[in-house]
Structures are given as structure tokens and as C-alpha cells.
Amino acid sequence: MKIIACIKRVPTTDLEPKIVDGKSLDPTGVAFETSFYDQIAVEAALQVKEQHGGEVTVLTIGPKEAQKELRDALAKGADHAVLLKDDRWMSRDAHSTARTLQQKIQELGADLVLTGRVATDRDNASVGVMLATLLDFACVSDVVELEIDGRGGKARREADSGLESYSFSLPAVITCQKDLNEPRRAGLKGIMAAKKKPLDESDCPESSNQAEVCQLDTPPPRPQGRIVGEGAAAVEALIDALHNEAKVL
């Protein structure tokens, strides 16, 4: 089975963002990692490979430095990595990302494509489902349970009001939700082995955005808390403040 896990290099979630030119993130001093849900996609890909055999390719669009995230996936057990180099990967819109991935996936060939339900930087939750549409693959999003048999699979997805169970045919795109699995850790041997695994780099084909970010704002700073008093005597003042000031009661 040919399995492709699509991942994204994103700023770590403890980042205190600084904005430059009104619409971009200042990259100085920013640490990057594989988006949380994409790590789950990599783990799901490795588990499917372990159960059914085959090969896992991990694919990303990003700068040369995204080799780090690809090597991490290789260290965990992926067989092959593909980097489509684009220094402006963070400002791509979902459609242009999905279109580029689609072209590469068609070139590589895939039975199963796994990706995170959302990237933790832009929070669009769009690329996976767009990719399925462009590829004309079956799609189940926000998956929390996944079972593959040779020609199709079963998945449960988290919907607003409960769990939905699906059966689907391959090829398919699955977007992974957090309860699907617990990503494994790469060990020392994996890291050493990853150095010898193939990592293909090529320039990302040109692709224009359909949606552009015009302005970026950080959330307004949270007002400082106020201690209204101590012990039981403070209860009345607290209720009063919650009622009349914060208007939450």
C-alpha cells in the first residue's frame, strides 16, 4: 500500500507572535515543529504500514529547514520524504497548498493520504478536504478511529453532536483528529537510520493564491485580573463583580 502523510512545519504553539508589515509573522527567533495533528497523521500512516505493509512517504511544502520535520518523520519510521521548497509557505492559501499537494501526490501515486485535521498555525482546516476533492478521492475528516482493510476502510469521525461511522473505499484522504492515536517518539536508532533514508527536494511549482491575507492582528491583551478580597467575606463582592461588571452571571 502506498501511503502518503502530508505535514506542515508550523511555529511552536507557545509562540508569542510578532507581526511585521501588518500581515506577516516575524520569523526571527521563532521555533518550528510539525503541526500537532500532522504528527498524528504520520503515526496513523506508520500504523497502517505496520498492519498492511507498504511504504510511507512524508510530504511537505516548506523552506529548506523543513528537512528537520521530514527527518523527524523518517526517524519515526517513514520510508521516504519529499520536500517541495517554498520559502513563502506560510503565506500560501489552502487552495494553492492543496493544488500543489495534489499534483505531487498524483505523480507519486497513493492509496491512502493522511493529514492533520487542521494546521496549528492558520487554523483553516481546509487543505485535507480540498485535496480529496482535487484528487477525486474518498474523504473522511476529523477521524478518531481508523481501520484499513485491503480495499477500503472504516472510520469514525467526531461530529458536533456525536460520532459518525463511515466505511470508505480506497484511494482516500483521511484527516486526523487528536484522539486517533498517540504519536510515537523517534529513538536514537531511528534518528541515525533517518540520515540514510531518501529525502527528495525540488522547487515548488508556481501557484497563485486565491485568497490573500490583508492584515494580521494579535488578539487584544487580556485585562489584568483583580483580587476583590479574601476568604468568605469576599464572596459578596465577587458575585457583585461577576454580575454587574463582567456580566457573566
Binding site: K68, A75, I191, M192
Partner: peptide, 17 residues
């Protein structure tokens, strides 16, 4: 550079664990 990159990955692995 390659050794440094590998060591950085090892450090990160150890730290996270």
C-alpha cells in the same frame, strides 16, 4: 553541519522525553 543537525534532533528527542 550534518553531525550538528543529527545531534540537534537527538537533543530535541531527549528533551521532549
Amino acid at each position: 553541519a550534518e553531525t550538528l543537525e543529527t545531534i540537534a534532533a537527538v537533543e530535541e528527542m531527549v528533551r521532549e522525553w
